[in-house]
Design a protein around this nucleic acid. Structure first.
Lengths: 231, 231
DNA sequence: TGACTGAATTATGAATTCATAATTACGTTT
DNA sequence: AAACGTAATTATGAATTCATAATTCAGTCA
Protein backbone atom coordinates (compact mmCIF):
# COMPACT_ATOMS: atom_id res chain seq x y z
CA UNK A 1 0.00 0.00 0.00
CA UNK A 2 1.35 3.38 -0.99
CA UNK A 3 0.76 5.88 1.72
CA UNK A 4 -0.37 9.38 2.59
CA UNK A 5 -1.10 11.27 -0.59
CA UNK A 6 -2.62 14.40 0.93
CA UNK A 7 -6.37 14.18 0.72
CA UNK A 8 -7.73 16.29 -2.06
CA UNK A 9 -10.75 18.34 -1.19
CA UNK A 10 -11.30 20.80 -3.98
CA UNK A 11 -12.66 24.08 -2.79
CA UNK A 12 -15.78 25.38 -4.44
CA UNK A 13 -14.16 28.03 -6.54
CA UNK A 14 -11.52 25.65 -7.86
CA UNK A 15 -14.23 23.28 -8.94
CA UNK A 16 -15.94 26.18 -10.65
CA UNK A 17 -12.78 27.27 -12.43
CA UNK A 18 -12.57 23.77 -13.86
CA UNK A 19 -16.18 23.62 -14.92
CA UNK A 20 -16.29 27.10 -16.39
CA UNK A 21 -13.04 26.55 -18.24
CA UNK A 22 -14.54 23.48 -19.78
CA UNK A 23 -17.64 25.36 -20.83
CA UNK A 24 -15.44 27.83 -22.66
CA UNK A 25 -13.05 25.30 -24.15
CA UNK A 26 -15.84 22.94 -25.22
CA UNK A 27 -17.50 25.92 -26.84
CA UNK A 28 -20.67 25.68 -24.74
CA UNK A 29 -20.14 29.34 -23.96
CA UNK A 30 -19.53 31.02 -27.27
CA UNK A 31 -16.86 33.68 -27.83
CA UNK A 32 -18.16 37.19 -27.34
CA UNK A 33 -21.13 35.91 -25.40
CA UNK A 34 -21.93 37.39 -22.04
CA UNK A 35 -21.30 35.02 -19.17
CA UNK A 36 -24.72 34.50 -17.60
CA UNK A 37 -23.79 34.85 -13.96
CA UNK A 38 -27.27 34.27 -12.65
CA UNK A 39 -28.07 31.19 -14.74
CA UNK A 40 -24.71 29.60 -13.97
CA UNK A 41 -25.19 30.15 -10.25
CA UNK A 42 -28.52 28.40 -10.37
CA UNK A 43 -27.37 25.55 -12.56
CA UNK A 44 -24.33 24.94 -10.38
CA UNK A 45 -26.27 25.58 -7.22
CA UNK A 46 -23.80 28.06 -5.80
CA UNK A 47 -23.91 31.69 -4.84
CA UNK A 48 -22.33 34.45 -6.83
CA UNK A 49 -19.27 34.83 -4.62
CA UNK A 50 -17.36 31.68 -5.61
CA UNK A 51 -18.52 31.96 -9.19
CA UNK A 52 -17.19 35.48 -9.45
CA UNK A 53 -13.92 34.41 -7.89
CA UNK A 54 -13.65 31.78 -10.58
CA UNK A 55 -14.33 34.36 -13.26
CA UNK A 56 -11.48 36.48 -11.98
CA UNK A 57 -9.13 33.55 -12.37
CA UNK A 58 -10.42 32.78 -15.85
CA UNK A 59 -9.92 36.41 -16.73
CA UNK A 60 -6.30 36.23 -15.61
CA UNK A 61 -5.93 33.28 -17.98
CA UNK A 62 -7.44 35.34 -20.76
CA UNK A 63 -10.42 33.07 -21.31
CA UNK A 64 -12.95 35.70 -20.34
CA UNK A 65 -12.81 39.47 -20.41
CA UNK A 66 -14.09 41.51 -17.51
CA UNK A 67 -15.66 44.88 -18.15
CA UNK A 68 -16.07 47.04 -15.09
CA UNK A 69 -19.71 47.17 -14.06
CA UNK A 70 -20.68 45.23 -17.13
CA UNK A 71 -19.78 41.74 -16.17
CA UNK A 72 -17.80 39.12 -18.03
CA UNK A 73 -17.73 38.09 -21.67
CA UNK A 74 -16.14 35.04 -23.20
CA UNK A 75 -12.94 36.20 -24.88
CA UNK A 76 -13.07 36.29 -28.64
CA UNK A 77 -10.56 34.19 -30.52
CA UNK A 78 -8.93 36.64 -32.84
CA UNK A 79 -6.58 35.75 -35.63
CA UNK A 80 -3.89 37.88 -34.04
CA UNK A 81 -4.27 35.93 -30.84
CA UNK A 82 -3.81 32.63 -32.65
CA UNK A 83 -0.82 34.05 -34.49
CA UNK A 84 0.63 35.07 -31.13
CA UNK A 85 -0.14 31.79 -29.44
CA UNK A 86 1.51 29.33 -31.79
CA UNK A 87 5.07 30.65 -31.77
CA UNK A 88 5.06 30.65 -28.00
CA UNK A 89 3.58 27.20 -27.66
CA UNK A 90 5.99 25.93 -30.30
CA UNK A 91 8.95 27.15 -28.25
CA UNK A 92 7.57 25.50 -25.15
CA UNK A 93 7.08 22.23 -26.99
CA UNK A 94 10.61 22.39 -28.28
CA UNK A 95 11.91 22.79 -24.76
CA UNK A 96 9.60 20.05 -23.54
CA UNK A 97 10.86 17.71 -26.23
CA UNK A 98 14.45 18.29 -25.22
CA UNK A 99 13.78 17.80 -21.55
CA UNK A 100 11.49 14.82 -22.04
CA UNK A 101 14.19 13.06 -24.03
CA UNK A 102 16.50 13.42 -21.08
CA UNK A 103 14.07 12.63 -18.33
CA UNK A 104 11.73 9.91 -19.54
CA UNK A 105 12.66 6.36 -18.66
CA UNK A 106 12.16 3.38 -20.95
CA UNK A 107 8.89 2.34 -19.37
CA UNK A 108 7.43 5.80 -19.79
CA UNK A 109 8.53 5.92 -23.40
CA UNK A 110 6.93 2.53 -23.98
CA UNK A 111 3.69 3.87 -22.58
CA UNK A 112 3.80 6.80 -24.97
CA UNK A 113 4.42 4.44 -27.85
CA UNK A 114 1.26 2.61 -26.89
CA UNK A 115 -0.73 5.80 -27.09
CA UNK A 116 0.94 6.56 -30.38
CA UNK A 117 -0.14 3.21 -31.81
CA UNK A 118 -3.67 3.83 -30.59
CA UNK A 119 -3.59 7.21 -32.30
CA UNK A 120 -2.45 5.72 -35.59
CA UNK A 121 -5.20 3.15 -35.33
CA UNK A 122 -7.77 5.89 -34.75
CA UNK A 123 -6.38 7.73 -37.75
CA UNK A 124 -6.79 4.73 -39.99
CA UNK A 125 -10.34 4.28 -38.73
CA UNK A 126 -10.96 8.00 -39.28
CA UNK A 127 -12.11 8.20 -35.70
CA UNK A 128 -11.58 11.88 -35.02
CA UNK A 129 -12.66 11.86 -31.40
CA UNK A 130 -10.33 9.05 -30.36
CA UNK A 131 -7.56 10.54 -32.46
CA UNK A 132 -7.81 13.92 -30.77
CA UNK A 133 -7.80 12.34 -27.36
CA UNK A 134 -4.76 10.14 -28.06
CA UNK A 135 -2.99 13.06 -29.67
CA UNK A 136 -3.59 15.22 -26.66
CA UNK A 137 -2.48 12.43 -24.35
CA UNK A 138 0.80 12.09 -26.19
CA UNK A 139 1.54 15.77 -26.12
CA UNK A 140 0.66 15.93 -22.45
CA UNK A 141 2.84 12.94 -21.69
CA UNK A 142 5.77 14.63 -23.39
CA UNK A 143 5.13 17.85 -21.53
CA UNK A 144 4.87 15.98 -18.25
CA UNK A 145 8.02 14.12 -19.20
CA UNK A 146 9.91 17.38 -19.06
CA UNK A 147 9.37 17.27 -15.30
CA UNK A 148 9.09 21.02 -15.20
CA UNK A 149 6.03 22.37 -13.47
CA UNK A 150 6.34 25.88 -14.83
CA UNK A 151 6.66 24.61 -18.35
CA UNK A 152 3.67 22.40 -17.78
CA UNK A 153 1.40 25.06 -16.38
CA UNK A 154 2.25 27.67 -18.98
CA UNK A 155 1.86 25.12 -21.73
CA UNK A 156 -1.51 24.13 -20.36
CA UNK A 157 -2.72 27.70 -20.42
CA UNK A 158 -1.69 28.15 -24.02
CA UNK A 159 -2.93 24.75 -25.11
CA UNK A 160 -6.39 25.72 -23.97
CA UNK A 161 -6.46 28.41 -26.60
CA UNK A 162 -5.46 26.04 -29.34
CA UNK A 163 -7.98 23.48 -28.20
CA UNK A 164 -10.61 26.17 -28.31
CA UNK A 165 -9.64 27.02 -31.86
CA UNK A 166 -10.14 23.39 -32.81
CA UNK A 167 -13.86 24.07 -32.86
CA UNK A 168 -13.45 26.63 -35.57
CA UNK A 169 -11.46 24.77 -38.16
CA UNK A 170 -11.61 21.25 -39.43
CA UNK A 171 -8.60 19.07 -39.93
CA UNK A 172 -7.94 18.54 -43.62
CA UNK A 173 -7.16 15.07 -44.87
CA UNK A 174 -3.73 16.18 -46.07
CA UNK A 175 -2.79 17.85 -42.83
CA UNK A 176 -4.00 14.85 -40.90
CA UNK A 177 -1.72 12.53 -42.85
CA UNK A 178 1.15 14.96 -42.45
CA UNK A 179 0.59 15.18 -38.70
CA UNK A 180 0.74 11.41 -38.41
CA UNK A 181 4.02 11.43 -40.32
CA UNK A 182 5.44 14.01 -37.97
CA UNK A 183 4.37 11.99 -34.97
CA UNK A 184 6.07 8.91 -36.39
CA UNK A 185 9.28 10.90 -36.66
CA UNK A 186 8.87 12.20 -33.16
CA UNK A 187 8.59 8.68 -31.78
CA UNK A 188 11.76 7.76 -33.63
CA UNK A 189 13.69 10.63 -32.12
CA UNK A 190 12.31 9.81 -28.71
CA UNK A 191 13.43 6.19 -29.00
CA UNK A 192 16.87 7.35 -30.12
CA UNK A 193 17.00 9.87 -27.29
CA UNK A 194 17.83 12.57 -29.78
CA UNK A 195 17.41 15.55 -27.51
CA UNK A 196 17.71 18.44 -29.94
CA UNK A 197 16.13 16.36 -32.69
CA UNK A 198 12.91 15.80 -30.80
CA UNK A 199 12.84 19.42 -29.68
CA UNK A 200 13.24 20.61 -33.25
CA UNK A 201 10.54 18.27 -34.50
CA UNK A 202 8.04 19.25 -31.87
CA UNK A 203 8.58 22.87 -32.67
CA UNK A 204 8.06 22.45 -36.39
CA UNK A 205 5.16 20.09 -35.77
CA UNK A 206 3.46 22.90 -33.90
CA UNK A 207 4.30 25.50 -36.51
CA UNK A 208 2.93 23.26 -39.25
CA UNK A 209 -0.22 22.84 -37.24
CA UNK A 210 -0.30 26.59 -37.01
CA UNK A 211 0.01 27.00 -40.77
CA UNK A 212 -2.81 24.54 -41.30
CA UNK A 213 -5.02 26.43 -38.89
CA UNK A 214 -4.37 29.74 -40.57
CA UNK A 215 -5.01 28.25 -43.98
CA UNK A 216 -8.28 26.77 -42.81
CA UNK A 217 -9.23 30.10 -41.32
CA UNK A 218 -8.51 31.91 -44.56
CA UNK A 219 -10.70 29.49 -46.43
CA UNK A 220 -13.44 29.90 -43.88
CA UNK A 221 -13.26 33.67 -43.92
CA UNK A 222 -13.83 33.79 -47.66
CA UNK A 223 -17.45 33.07 -46.89
CA UNK A 224 -18.06 35.69 -44.27
CA UNK A 225 -17.40 39.40 -44.56
CA UNK A 226 -16.54 39.97 -40.91
CA UNK A 227 -13.38 37.93 -40.98
CA UNK A 228 -11.48 40.08 -38.55
CA UNK A 229 -12.75 38.16 -35.55
CA UNK A 230 -13.73 34.57 -35.69
CA UNK A 231 -17.16 33.33 -34.77
CA UNK B 1 -5.41 65.35 -30.48
CA UNK B 2 -5.31 61.58 -30.62
CA UNK B 3 -8.66 60.15 -29.73
CA UNK B 4 -10.50 57.25 -28.12
CA UNK B 5 -8.17 55.40 -25.80
CA UNK B 6 -10.76 53.60 -23.68
CA UNK B 7 -10.89 55.17 -20.27
CA UNK B 8 -9.14 53.12 -17.67
CA UNK B 9 -11.02 52.64 -14.45
CA UNK B 10 -9.34 49.88 -12.50
CA UNK B 11 -11.74 47.79 -10.50
CA UNK B 12 -10.98 47.24 -6.86
CA UNK B 13 -9.77 43.69 -7.15
CA UNK B 14 -7.43 44.51 -10.03
CA UNK B 15 -5.88 47.24 -7.97
CA UNK B 16 -5.46 44.76 -5.17
CA UNK B 17 -3.85 42.17 -7.41
CA UNK B 18 -1.29 44.80 -8.33
CA UNK B 19 -0.62 45.86 -4.78
CA UNK B 20 -0.46 42.37 -3.37
CA UNK B 21 1.77 41.20 -6.15
CA UNK B 22 4.14 44.01 -5.32
CA UNK B 23 4.13 43.10 -1.66
CA UNK B 24 5.21 39.60 -2.61
CA UNK B 25 7.74 40.61 -5.25
CA UNK B 26 9.26 43.34 -3.11
CA UNK B 27 9.58 40.79 -0.36
CA UNK B 28 7.37 42.72 2.09
CA UNK B 29 5.43 39.50 2.49
CA UNK B 30 8.01 36.81 3.11
CA UNK B 31 7.88 33.36 1.52
CA UNK B 32 6.07 30.83 3.64
CA UNK B 33 4.40 33.56 5.64
CA UNK B 34 0.68 33.50 6.09
CA UNK B 35 -1.12 36.23 4.20
CA UNK B 36 -2.75 38.33 6.90
CA UNK B 37 -6.17 38.77 5.38
CA UNK B 38 -7.55 40.88 8.17
CA UNK B 39 -4.62 43.28 8.46
CA UNK B 40 -4.44 43.77 4.71
CA UNK B 41 -8.15 44.54 4.52
CA UNK B 42 -7.78 47.21 7.14
CA UNK B 43 -4.62 48.72 5.71
CA UNK B 44 -6.14 48.84 2.22
CA UNK B 45 -9.50 49.88 3.56
CA UNK B 46 -11.45 47.23 1.68
CA UNK B 47 -13.62 44.30 2.65
CA UNK B 48 -12.54 40.71 2.41
CA UNK B 49 -14.43 39.97 -0.80
CA UNK B 50 -12.22 41.83 -3.29
CA UNK B 51 -9.09 40.92 -1.39
CA UNK B 52 -9.92 37.26 -1.54
CA UNK B 53 -10.69 37.54 -5.25
CA UNK B 54 -7.23 39.00 -5.68
CA UNK B 55 -5.70 36.15 -3.73
CA UNK B 56 -7.33 33.65 -6.05
CA UNK B 57 -5.71 35.33 -9.00
CA UNK B 58 -2.33 35.45 -7.29
CA UNK B 59 -2.71 31.78 -6.52
CA UNK B 60 -3.31 31.01 -10.17
CA UNK B 61 -0.06 32.83 -10.88
CA UNK B 62 1.66 30.70 -8.28
CA UNK B 63 2.66 33.59 -6.05
CA UNK B 64 0.59 32.39 -3.14
CA UNK B 65 -0.64 28.97 -2.15
CA UNK B 66 -4.18 28.44 -0.98
CA UNK B 67 -4.92 25.79 1.62
CA UNK B 68 -8.56 24.90 1.99
CA UNK B 69 -9.95 26.38 5.19
CA UNK B 70 -6.49 27.53 6.17
CA UNK B 71 -6.09 30.62 4.11
CA UNK B 72 -3.24 31.71 1.89
CA UNK B 73 0.51 31.54 2.30
CA UNK B 74 3.17 33.26 0.25
CA UNK B 75 4.66 30.63 -2.03
CA UNK B 76 8.12 29.49 -1.11
CA UNK B 77 10.86 29.96 -3.66
CA UNK B 78 12.39 26.55 -3.96
CA UNK B 79 15.53 25.73 -5.82
CA UNK B 80 13.59 23.36 -8.03
CA UNK B 81 11.24 26.15 -8.93
CA UNK B 82 14.10 28.41 -9.93
CA UNK B 83 15.62 25.59 -11.93
CA UNK B 84 12.30 25.16 -13.69
CA UNK B 85 11.77 28.84 -14.29
CA UNK B 86 14.96 29.80 -16.04
CA UNK B 87 14.88 27.42 -18.98
CA UNK B 88 11.35 28.51 -19.77
CA UNK B 89 12.05 32.20 -19.46
CA UNK B 90 15.21 31.74 -21.52
CA UNK B 91 13.19 30.23 -24.37
CA UNK B 92 10.72 33.08 -24.21
CA UNK B 93 13.51 35.64 -24.28
CA UNK B 94 15.03 33.92 -27.27
CA UNK B 95 11.74 34.13 -29.12
CA UNK B 96 11.30 37.72 -28.00
CA UNK B 97 14.75 38.61 -29.30
CA UNK B 98 13.98 37.15 -32.69
CA UNK B 99 10.65 38.88 -32.98
CA UNK B 100 11.88 42.19 -31.59
CA UNK B 101 14.63 42.27 -34.22
CA UNK B 102 11.98 42.00 -36.89
CA UNK B 103 9.42 44.33 -35.41
CA UNK B 104 11.23 47.22 -33.76
CA UNK B 105 11.74 50.33 -35.84
CA UNK B 106 14.83 52.51 -35.73
CA UNK B 107 13.34 55.02 -33.32
CA UNK B 108 12.43 52.28 -30.87
CA UNK B 109 15.87 50.77 -31.10
CA UNK B 110 17.40 54.18 -30.46
CA UNK B 111 15.29 54.49 -27.34
CA UNK B 112 16.54 51.15 -26.10
CA UNK B 113 20.12 52.21 -26.75
CA UNK B 114 19.50 55.22 -24.52
CA UNK B 115 18.39 52.97 -21.72
CA UNK B 116 21.39 50.77 -22.37
CA UNK B 117 23.73 53.72 -22.01
CA UNK B 118 22.01 54.71 -18.80
CA UNK B 119 22.46 51.17 -17.54
CA UNK B 120 26.16 51.16 -18.33
CA UNK B 121 26.50 54.48 -16.56
CA UNK B 122 24.77 53.08 -13.50
CA UNK B 123 27.09 50.10 -13.64
CA UNK B 124 30.16 52.29 -13.65
CA UNK B 125 28.76 54.24 -10.73
CA UNK B 126 27.95 50.97 -8.97
CA UNK B 127 24.41 52.23 -8.58
CA UNK B 128 22.57 48.94 -8.16
CA UNK B 129 19.09 50.37 -7.93
CA UNK B 130 19.34 52.40 -11.12
CA UNK B 131 21.07 49.51 -12.83
CA UNK B 132 18.33 47.06 -11.99
CA UNK B 133 15.67 49.45 -13.17
CA UNK B 134 17.39 50.19 -16.49
CA UNK B 135 18.08 46.50 -16.98
CA UNK B 136 14.47 45.63 -16.43
CA UNK B 137 13.38 48.43 -18.76
CA UNK B 138 15.58 47.08 -21.53
CA UNK B 139 14.31 43.55 -21.17
CA UNK B 140 10.74 44.77 -21.07
CA UNK B 141 11.29 46.91 -24.14
CA UNK B 142 12.61 43.91 -26.03
CA UNK B 143 9.71 41.78 -24.89
CA UNK B 144 7.25 44.49 -25.88
CA UNK B 145 9.10 44.79 -29.16
CA UNK B 146 8.06 41.28 -30.02
CA UNK B 147 4.53 42.65 -30.33
CA UNK B 148 3.12 39.42 -29.02
CA UNK B 149 0.72 39.76 -26.12
CA UNK B 150 0.83 36.13 -25.12
CA UNK B 151 4.60 36.14 -25.05
CA UNK B 152 4.50 39.29 -23.02
CA UNK B 153 2.03 38.11 -20.41
CA UNK B 154 3.67 34.74 -19.92
CA UNK B 155 7.05 36.36 -19.71
CA UNK B 156 5.77 38.80 -17.13
CA UNK B 157 4.47 35.99 -14.95
CA UNK B 158 7.79 34.19 -15.04
CA UNK B 159 9.84 37.35 -14.63
CA UNK B 160 8.09 37.99 -11.35
CA UNK B 161 9.62 34.85 -9.97
CA UNK B 162 13.10 35.82 -11.00
CA UNK B 163 12.65 39.30 -9.62
CA UNK B 164 11.55 37.78 -6.37
CA UNK B 165 14.68 35.65 -6.27
CA UNK B 166 16.75 38.79 -6.66
CA UNK B 167 16.18 39.46 -2.98
CA UNK B 168 17.88 36.24 -2.05
CA UNK B 169 21.13 36.47 -3.92
CA UNK B 170 23.52 39.31 -4.51
CA UNK B 171 25.02 40.08 -7.85
CA UNK B 172 28.72 39.26 -7.82
CA UNK B 173 31.16 41.73 -9.28
CA UNK B 174 32.27 39.24 -11.92
CA UNK B 175 28.76 38.35 -13.00
CA UNK B 176 27.86 42.01 -13.14
CA UNK B 177 30.71 42.73 -15.53
CA UNK B 178 29.80 39.70 -17.59
CA UNK B 179 26.17 40.78 -17.80
CA UNK B 180 27.20 44.19 -19.07
CA UNK B 181 29.32 42.52 -21.73
CA UNK B 182 26.39 40.39 -22.83
CA UNK B 183 24.17 43.42 -23.03
CA UNK B 184 26.73 45.19 -25.21
CA UNK B 185 26.63 42.23 -27.58
CA UNK B 186 22.87 42.21 -27.56
CA UNK B 187 22.76 45.84 -28.60
CA UNK B 188 25.13 45.06 -31.44
CA UNK B 189 22.95 42.27 -32.73
CA UNK B 190 19.91 44.46 -32.40
CA UNK B 191 21.52 47.24 -34.42
CA UNK B 192 22.53 44.70 -37.06
CA UNK B 193 19.04 43.20 -37.06
CA UNK B 194 20.57 39.81 -36.53
CA UNK B 195 17.37 37.93 -35.76
CA UNK B 196 18.69 34.54 -34.71
CA UNK B 197 21.80 36.15 -33.25
CA UNK B 198 19.88 38.29 -30.80
CA UNK B 199 17.60 35.40 -29.94
CA UNK B 200 20.56 33.18 -29.20
CA UNK B 201 22.25 35.83 -27.10
CA UNK B 202 19.20 36.57 -25.03
CA UNK B 203 18.75 32.90 -24.31
CA UNK B 204 22.32 32.38 -23.17
CA UNK B 205 22.23 35.66 -21.28
CA UNK B 206 19.36 34.28 -19.26
CA UNK B 207 20.99 30.91 -18.75
CA UNK B 208 24.16 32.60 -17.55
CA UNK B 209 22.12 34.62 -15.14
CA UNK B 210 20.61 31.36 -14.03
CA UNK B 211 24.01 29.79 -13.41
CA UNK B 212 25.04 32.82 -11.38
CA UNK B 213 21.92 32.56 -9.28
CA UNK B 214 22.43 28.91 -8.58
CA UNK B 215 26.05 29.47 -7.70
CA UNK B 216 25.13 32.27 -5.31
CA UNK B 217 22.48 30.03 -3.78
CA UNK B 218 24.97 27.24 -3.23
CA UNK B 219 27.31 29.61 -1.50
CA UNK B 220 24.50 30.94 0.63
CA UNK B 221 23.27 27.49 1.58
CA UNK B 222 26.66 26.51 2.92
CA UNK B 223 25.84 28.68 5.89
CA UNK B 224 22.41 27.36 6.72
CA UNK B 225 21.44 23.76 7.30
CA UNK B 226 17.92 24.02 5.93
CA UNK B 227 18.99 24.66 2.39
CA UNK B 228 16.15 22.81 0.77
CA UNK B 229 13.90 25.84 0.69
CA UNK B 230 15.15 29.35 0.54
CA UNK B 231 14.35 31.91 3.21
C1' DT C 1 5.13 17.89 34.61
C1' DG C 2 3.33 16.60 30.24
C1' DA C 3 0.16 14.69 27.07
C1' DC C 4 -4.67 14.53 26.02
C1' DT C 5 -9.64 16.22 25.83
C1' DG C 6 -12.99 19.43 24.88
C1' DA C 7 -14.81 24.07 25.09
C1' DA C 8 -13.96 28.88 23.49
C1' DT C 9 -12.11 31.63 20.04
C1' DT C 10 -10.74 32.79 15.66
C1' DA C 11 -10.35 32.36 10.75
C1' DT C 12 -12.22 30.91 6.56
C1' DG C 13 -15.50 29.79 2.70
C1' DA C 14 -19.62 30.90 0.99
C1' DA C 15 -24.36 33.14 1.08
C1' DT C 16 -26.66 37.21 1.50
C1' DT C 17 -27.42 42.02 1.49
C1' DC C 18 -26.67 46.64 -0.01
C1' DA C 19 -25.33 50.68 -2.88
C1' DT C 20 -24.61 52.04 -7.33
C1' DA C 21 -23.76 51.75 -12.28
C1' DA C 22 -25.78 50.23 -16.54
C1' DT C 23 -29.61 48.98 -19.22
C1' DT C 24 -34.24 48.97 -20.52
C1' DA C 25 -38.81 50.83 -20.83
C1' DC C 26 -41.64 54.52 -21.16
C1' DG C 27 -43.34 59.06 -22.09
C1' DT C 28 -42.70 63.49 -24.07
C1' DT C 29 -41.65 66.63 -27.70
C1' DT C 30 -40.98 67.87 -32.26
C1' DA D 1 -42.87 58.25 -36.04
C1' DA D 2 -38.05 59.42 -34.47
C1' DA D 3 -35.15 61.31 -31.00
C1' DC D 4 -34.36 62.66 -26.68
C1' DG D 5 -34.80 62.61 -21.68
C1' DT D 6 -36.26 60.44 -17.56
C1' DA D 7 -37.92 56.82 -14.52
C1' DA D 8 -38.01 51.80 -13.52
C1' DT D 9 -35.53 47.70 -13.67
C1' DT D 10 -31.73 44.90 -13.65
C1' DA D 11 -26.97 43.67 -13.09
C1' DT D 12 -22.79 44.34 -10.88
C1' DG D 13 -19.13 45.31 -7.34
C1' DA D 14 -18.31 45.22 -2.81
C1' DA D 15 -19.68 44.93 2.22
C1' DT D 16 -21.74 42.24 5.47
C1' DT D 17 -23.47 38.21 7.58
C1' DC D 18 -23.57 33.39 8.56
C1' DA D 19 -22.14 28.50 9.14
C1' DT D 20 -18.37 25.75 9.80
C1' DA D 21 -13.61 24.29 9.98
C1' DA D 22 -9.30 25.14 12.31
C1' DT D 23 -6.81 26.79 16.09
C1' DT D 24 -6.02 28.12 20.77
C1' DC D 25 -6.37 27.54 25.44
C1' DA D 26 -7.82 25.77 29.79
C1' DG D 27 -8.59 21.98 32.50
C1' DT D 28 -7.99 16.95 33.47
C1' DC D 29 -5.73 12.86 34.17
C1' DA D 30 -1.69 9.86 33.91
Amino acid sequence: MNLPETIKRPTLHEELVERLRNLVVEDALKPGEKVPEKELCESFGVSRTPLREALKVLASEGLVVLQANRGARVARVTRKELEDTFPVIAMLEQLAGELACQNLNDAEIARIEKRHDAMVKAYKARDRKTYFQANQDIHNALIDGAKNELLESHHRMLAVRVRRARFMVNLSEERWAEAIQEHEQMMEKLRDRDVTGLGQLMKTHMMNKFAAHIKALDLASEDSAESRTLS
